[in-house]
């Protein structure tokens, strides 16, 4: 398997906070790559640097054979990286299908004159955009919701709509920022099937997730960040028992106490948290 994305010594500082220091990793084509770490570990910052929302202070990304540095967010999307947001950012007052149709923007070309004259090419493109958007809504199980406003959808469906919108940009890499946050058990297992299906269709997935069962079950490999540093990387089974990871989640001295647990606690546990209470 070839490498799709590689990060070399990525660093980002906000004032006095070193959000990322010398983070390195590489994602292979077709894999699901998990990104975990306690709150404030720098996961979302890494997403934002990757998608050019912030510029990295140092380091470089190489994506699909070419560097990503110096690009604007829309150019990153054009290169083939699509993302969702930790706090859902849909176009709330537009319908579900319009949200997905906007995702087609970067792969279509019609301009104002084509639109005003409604040329044959524009009409054909519009029809294709709409057909593709409808197919993607169906893909994520929202076909029946096409004409509902995004803000009227239940939470779990908003998450899936965001994924459909991201898929509309025809990404090589789909970056999901806590897609399961706030979901109930049924929604989470639906999401799990959806992510597996997306990978099955040949799209590489980068997944930030606090739901350990989900991320450990789905990912081929996992990267663990703590205080902006890479502390471990590898297959879930290996990462799960890594003393440094357990320490990051549960605090110093927890290593021996949690041998029986064998699985880091989820969401937000910081050193000092009670191990059992977190799960």
């Amino acid at each position: 398997m070839s490498v799709l994305l590689s990060a070399t010594r990525i660093s980002k500082r906000f004032g006095g906070v070193q959000a990322l220091s010398d983070v390195e990793f590489s994602i292979r084509r077709g894999e699901i790559y998990g990104l975990i770490g306690p709150n404030g570990a720098g996961k979302t910052t890494l997403f934002n640097v990757l998608t050019s929302v912030y510029a990295a202070d140092d380091g470089r990304f190489e994506f699909d054979g070419a560097p990503l540095s110096g690009l604007k967010p829309h150019q990153v999307a054009a290169r083939g990286i699509a993302r969702t947001f930790q706090n859902i950012r849909l176009f709330a007052n537009l319908t579900a299908i319009e949200n997905v149709m906007i995702g087609r923007h970067v792969r279509t070309r019609a301009g104002v004159f084509g639109a005003m004259l409604r040329t044959r090419a524009t009409r054909a493109e519009e029809a294709a955009i709409e057909a593709r958007a409808a197919a993607l809504l169906d893909y994520v199980g929202l076909a029946a919701r096409a004409d509902d406003l995004a803000r009227q959808l239940p939470y779990g469906e908003q998450r899936r709509l965001e994924i459909a919108r991201a898929l509309a940009t025809e990404p090589l890499l789909l970056a999901l920022d806590e897609p399961a946050a706030g979901m109930n058990a049924t929604e989470t297992s639906d999401l799990r099937r959806l992510i597996e299906r997306i990978r099955g269709d040949g799209i590489t997935v980068l997944l930030i997730e606090h739901d350990m069962k989900l991320v450990m079950g789905l990912s081929d490999r996992v990267l663990v960040l703590d205080y902006g540093r890479r502390i471990a990387e590898g297959p879930p089974a290996q990462v799960r028992t890594d003393p440094k990871v357990i320490e990051a989640y549960l605090g110093t001295g927890a290593t021996s106490a949690t041998r029986a647990h064998a699985e880091p606690a989820p969401a937000g546990a910081r050193p000092g948290a009670v191990p059992g209470a977190a799960n």
């Binding site: 967010p73 829309h74 849909l90 709330a92 970067v106 792969r107 509309a168």
Partner: peptide, 13 residues
Amino acid sequence: EDEIAARAMGIDT
């Protein structure tokens, strides 16, 4: 609706 999301979707704002 949302400029940041628009950019992330590949719109050259």
